[in-house]
């Protein structure tokens, strides 16, 4: 007698007037039955959550909303993105205009600090530091996003191919997976900076170089992560169940294994945004970044400020703080997302 547990009162006809009659004690049996079923439904009703559709992501979002770490991260990221997108409107002056060039004499250690017209002061060429900082946010965001996208796309492609071959391909699949993973291992063995310097040396210093270099360095991380997640999912019973239903292998890989493996990869991309920003800054600092003064980048600004570190540390502090806080924002967001998606912490 299988019954749905959510409806244990088959006989219960909700009827309040008759339930009231039950109080005098001597009422027909069926009335008494209805009354008690009513009462039970009432007591259980408080805990039956009807039709609440919740998925993994909605759950994660609910959990993150209560997490101060996630909120902090989100606020930083939102502020950063808004500033970056609206930078032309926010910047009061052109980043290249040396309007106050006559007030700054680096060789005499004369710099101009914050004042009413230049909120963050002037740089060593007499340009408005605030305008450069705001415009730089846009460059930094672009480097981070494009580099992450490059890493994500190619990494997911490689890792997804390796993972689905390993899980579903049988003997040959295992071999393909083996070859792909050895290639990825080789990429992983190259230090990020070395790889970036090589790419930069081949293409010449530019923003594209930085984005490509940082992105390529992220490929093996994404690939390994996705492959690992796919292997773990491939051993789950639902994949076996799909196979025993007769679902085609390609479909199993795309509709079953892949969507369930994306969680860690998406978390990784928020974290990668942070590392990409730092890496890009490092590359620019090394002089591989965009030499064009009209689109300053925080890393380039930092590199330029280095010469005046002892006399005008503020020039270095602003871009450095920008990099640190932005990276922190993305890291906080990524970490809290990882935590919110962690199956061990979910109920």
């Amino acid at each position: 007698m299988p019954t749905t547990p959510s409806s244990p009162n088959q006989s219960g006809v909700p009827d309040r007037d008759e339930a009231a009659v039950a109080e005098d004690g001597r009422v027909p049996l069926h009335r008494r039955k209805a009354a008690k079923a009513d009462r039970l439904a009432e007591l259980m009703g408080t805990r039956v959550d009807e039709g609440q559709i919740s998925g993994i992501w909605i759950d994660a979002f609910r959990r993150m909303r209560r997490n101060p770490m996630a909120i902090t991260g989100a606020v930083i990221v939102v502020v950063f993105v808004v500033v970056a997108l609206l930078s032309p409107l926010l910047a009061p002056y052109s980043p290249t205009s040396q309007a106050w060039g006559s007030e700054v004499f680096p060789n005499r250690n004369e710099f101009v600090g914050p004042r009413a017209e230049n909120w963050l002061g002037l740089d060593h060429l007499g340009r408005d530091l605030y305008s450069r900082f705001v415009i730089g946010a846009r460059q930094t965001l672009m480097v981070g996003v494009v580099a992450t996208l490059v890493g994500f796309f190619f990494g997911a492609l490689l890792g997804g191919a390796a993972g689905s071959c390993a899980v579903l391909g049988g003997r040959w699949g295992a071999r393909v997976d083996n070859v792909l993973m050895r290639i990825i291992d080789m990429m992983l063995a190259l230090p990020t900076l070395l790889l970036a310097v090589t790419v930069a040396a081949l293409v010449g210093p530019s923003l594209t170089t930085v984005m490509l270099a940082v992105g390529i360095a992220q490929i093996p991380i994404f690939a390994r992560l996705l492959r690992g997640a796919m292997l773990a999912q491939g051993n789950r019973d639902y994949v076996l169940a799909a196979q025993s239903l007769g679902v085609r292998k390609r479909k199993i890989a795309l509709t079953h294994i892949l969507p369930n493996s994306m969680g860690p990869v998406i978390v990784q991309s928020t974290l990668t945004l942070a590392t990409a920003i730092i890496d890009a800054a490092a590359l620019s600092y090394l002089g591989l970044g965009n030499p064009d003064a009209s689109s300053p980048e925080w890393g380039t600004m930092l590199a330029e400020a280095q010469r005046f570190l002892s006399t005008a540390p503020a020039l270095a502090v602003y871009p450095a703080l920008g990099i640190i806080i932005t990276a922190l924002g993305f890291t906080l967001l990524g970490e809290s997302l990882r935590e919110a998606l962690d199956p061990k912490l979910r109920k």
Partner: peptide
């Protein structure tokens, strides 16, 4: 194709259903 005539019920009821 033949698998439609042979079906399987698994041990772990949660693990054998795709959570998504």
């Amino acid at each position: 194709r033949e698998r439609k005539n042979l079906q399987m019920v698994f041990q772990d009821p949660l693990g054998s259903l795709n959570p998504r």
